[in-house]
Design a protein around this nucleic acid. Structure first.
Lengths: 142, 142
DNA sequence: CAGTTTTCGTTAAAATTCGAACGACAGTAC
DNA sequence: GTACTGTCGTTCGAATTTTAACGAAAACTG
């Protein structure tokens, strides 16, 4: 269980550090940053609410809240979904994209400094595949 | 950055699943469970608040809140610290220990099912060492 | 030993999370 | 078409976390 203990501590510590960095750099929380990243990767910089929530791994209600916050900040907009009248599209704005481009380097630097750069190429490859396996297993069972 | 993405998703998904399991099994949250584990490992089943907060990786105020909750549930007690009049000791009660023994198996089963058992011995070893490295780095820089 | 600075744990207010319940719409069966 | 069932996003209330500020006690300084 040593692996598990280390995993939990490391992920919580890293989470804290990342939160701190993002807040200082752009007043963003980690979930908010994740939302921007996912949107920037999506076709036309937009995504359905439910799909986005699944991707970021937060509840739908938490996403509703965060999208509202990001909308107030002008980084995201809501749009009606053409194919489904119930649907809502979260759309990354120009300002959102610029914000992301401004913040990413610092974020990645933290991730590298405390995680990536401390692992050999071999270790990194192993860990990636391990994390993918557990992600897949958990997504499958839900 | 694939490694990082997988890491974040996997840890959030796992966190959710664990939270769900603990809530169902004993009405505990993950932080609460962590507190019980740390206390059960400590000499005389007790620890100073600040030290405990560092171990579990939560803020002091969050720990104050959680210890109060656990005290209401009868799983933990507060005691005055003999060597330091400011200090407070969190002490695991008999009921707390029994609760932990009751819940642990189910918890470990989840951790194994989604993380440990999906990794080869080699992968597990690599991940442990990687997590230890980042934990150490993050604790050192704080 | 007085004066300053830290550390300890708690508190208060604000922010964020989740789960459950909801109304609106979509999909399917008959 | 009508009824059933499922999905979508939001809202509400409860629980939890964080930050900042606080009073008390320790540790350090001279």
């Amino acid at each position: 269980m040593a692996a598990w203990r280390a995993f939990v501590s490391a992920s919580h510590l890293l989470e804290r550090r990342i939160e701190e960095q993002l807040k200082a750099a752009a007043g963003l929380t980690h979930p908010q940053y994740e939302i921007l990243v996912r949107l920037s990767d999506a076709p036309e910089h937009q995504m359905r609410m439910t799909e986005l929530a699944r991707g970021v791994v937060v509840s739908k209600s938490a996403l509703t809240y965060q999208i509202t916050q990001l909308e107030k900040a002008g980084l995201v907009e809501r749009a009606t979904c053409p194919s489904d009248d119930r649907g809502v599209l979260a759309v990354l704005t120009e300002a959102g994209l610029r914000c992301l481009e401004k913040v990413s380097p610092g974020h990645l630097e933290v991730v590298r400094a405390y995680l990536i750069d401390r692992l050999s190429r071999e270790e990194l490859r192993t860990m990636t595949s391990a994390m993918r396996k557990t992600e897949e297993a958990l997504r499958a069972s839900a």
